[in-house]
Write a protein that binds this DNA or RNA. Structure first.
Length: 487
RNA sequence: GGGGGUGUAGCUCAGUGGUAGAGCAUCUGCCUUUUAAGCAGGUGGUCGGUGGUUCGAUCCCACCCACCCUCACCA
């Protein structure tokens, strides 16, 4: 048998001794009366009444003093100090504590008191092992710093870095707030397929899988769009889905292969209505989460309490890059990109060139909330033509803090136009654009039956969480980000 | 994929061409209000991996792996 390192062997030895004493190191349950938070909040009453409390949690620090011991236990809501005294527990019980370590789950019974140094604590009259820990926790003072370990072993990160737990609690509250906002406005939350025979609704490469019984390839969805629109056709007027989407593409601080999205559709609305809706939604979330509309993201002060700026895409490029691309042809735009030292090649098509120029010269400077509107048709195959400018669509993206937070259209509901757009996409695909969208015949058939005029919106939930928790990387707001196999 | 950085004890980090250190954790002893408890004494390492240079490599070189930053890609 392989020899364990000392720090593991010692704990195995203690585990064995517990069993020899007839103590189950992994019992089935413990009836708590309070959480640490509840005790601290109602401390004065508990102290006055000398009420016996029972609390459970993980030992996170330990100070022994011969015949007395102090330790903190951390539960799901905070931490509280416990005091053990030999006189009060009896010698045998007190000595059993030798088999407890930092990291173990313990149940404690006792009454509350305040120590000499003023800390609200529990004077234990009994304690019980709830789960023996066989590995040491990271260091108490610096916590877990190594990002790789923090992501791979998020549970440790959560145990020792309290601000991490707070970020994820905020994440949950943000999603709750989004649901409340939409539910209160009569939106219906729905679920649509993750496994799709034809992927659509966005421009991205998919993950592919296979159904054995049907002997058919399926794709993990890259968006929910085409299914939610089918529901509009079916008669729902306001729907939304909080979903995971999957895109088989690169990973960086703004992208994870699986990510969370909020998609919503509202019949009889256009993109102007959706702009207003998204602005109200994010202001509502900010009020709920931050209790204010002015906050700092990555060093920049962001003010949501303004009239949010709206600029057409080409205007924004004119404003920030000082060049008018709207009337230029592909070669002229390529020249512009090259002169700006952007890495583009002869294969980069016109629309990707525009996108690259925007992404490098405009997007990073969109710190205050800004709607970029009216994208070219070729960049927006699911968006309705602009009512006044035929070469553009009624589409917008929202940027705050340099982050792209949403993408929305007056949805294309002209079945023949949609068919044309799919054909254009297939042409791009034939020219080597692997992210070009795939024609979905069933969706076209559905559109033939008629979809009401509709406004739709997709919001990257992870990025909203980044914004409101001042996180620099998407990995800091996803519990278990995608990682390569351990090296 | 390109450029830069990091990788040393369970954790946080020093360090050196002659096979290694601190703090915390852990172990032993002392200690009945401590809280980064204290005091005394221990244990613990394939120095990310594989090759090369060298009498000798954790250190220098090459390649590989992982992670971070950045560019590209990716709405």
């Amino acid at each position: 048998m392989e020899k364990l390192p000392d720090y593991l062997a010692h704990r195995r030895e203690k585990l064995k001794k517990l069993k020899e004493k007839g103590i189950n190191p992994y019992p089935y349950k413990f009836e708590k009366t309070h959480s640490s938070k509840e005790i601290l909040e109602s401390f004065e009453d508990l102290e006055k009444e000398k009420k016996v409390v029972k609390i459970a949690g993980r030992i996170t620090s330990l100070r022994t003093h011969g015949k007395s011991i102090f330790f903190h236990i951390q539960d799901g809501y905070g931490k509280i100090q416990v005091y053990l005294k030999s006189d009060e527990l009896g010698k045998e019980k007190f000595e059993n504590f030798e088999l407890f370590d930092i990291g173990d789950f313990i149940g404690v019974e006792g009454i509350v008191f305040v120590t000499k140094t003023g800390e609200k604590s529990i004077r234990a009259s009994d304690f019980v092992m709830l789960s023996k820990s066989l590995r040491p926790l990271p260091e108490k003072w610096h916590g877990l710093q190594d990002k790789e370990l923090r992501y791979r072993q998020r549970y440790l990160d959560l145990i020792v870095n309290p601000e991490v737990k707070k970020t994820f609690l905020t994440r949950t509250k943000i999603i709750q707030a989004m649901r409340k906002f939409l539910d209160d406005r009569g939106f219906i939350e729905v679920e649509t397929p993750i496994l799709q025979p034809i992927y659509g609704g966005a421009s991205a490469r998919p993950f592919k899988t296979h159904h054995n019984v049907l002997d058919r390839d399926l794709y993990l969805r890259i968006a929910d769009e085409l299914y939610l629109k089918r529901l509009l056709i079916g008669g729902f007027e306001k729907v939304y889905e909080v979903c995971k989407d999957f895109r088989n593409e690169g990973m960086d601080k703004n992208h994870n292969p699986e990510f969370s999205m909020l998609e919503l559709y509202q019949a009889y609305a256009d993109y102007n209505d959706i702009m207003k809706l998204e602005e109200e939604l994010l202001k509502f979330v900010a009020e709920v989460i931050l209790k204010k509309l002015i906050f700092v993201y990555q060093g920049d002060e962001i003010n949501l309490d303004t009239e949010w700026k709206k600029i057409p895409l080409f205007e924004s490029i004119k404003e920030y890059a000082n060049v008018d691309l709207e009337k230029k042809d592909e070669e002229e735009i390529r020249e512009v990109a090259k002169n700006l030292n952007l890495s583009v090649d002869e294969k980069t098509n016109k629309w990707k060139l525009v996108d690259t120029i925007f992404g490098n010269l405009v997007q990073p400077y969109l710190i205050q909330p800004t709607f970029i509107t009216d994208y070219p048709i070729q960049m927006s195959p699911l968006a309705k033509r602009h009512r006044k400018k035929d070469h553009l669509t009624e589409r917008f993206e929202l940027f705050i803090g340099g982050l792209e937070l949403g993408n929305a259209f007056s949805e294309l509901n002209d079945p023949l136009d949609q068919k044309e757009r799919f054909l254009q996409q297939m042409n791009l695909r034939d020219l080597g654009d692997e992210e070009a969208q795939v024609t979905d015949e069933d969706f076209l058939r559905a559109l033939d039956y008629g979809m009401p005029p509709t406004g739709g919106l997709g919001i990257g939930i992870d990025r909203v969480v980044m914004l409101f928790t001042d996180s620099a990387s998407i990995r800091d707001v996803i519990f278990f980000p995608q990682m390569r196999p351990e090296g």
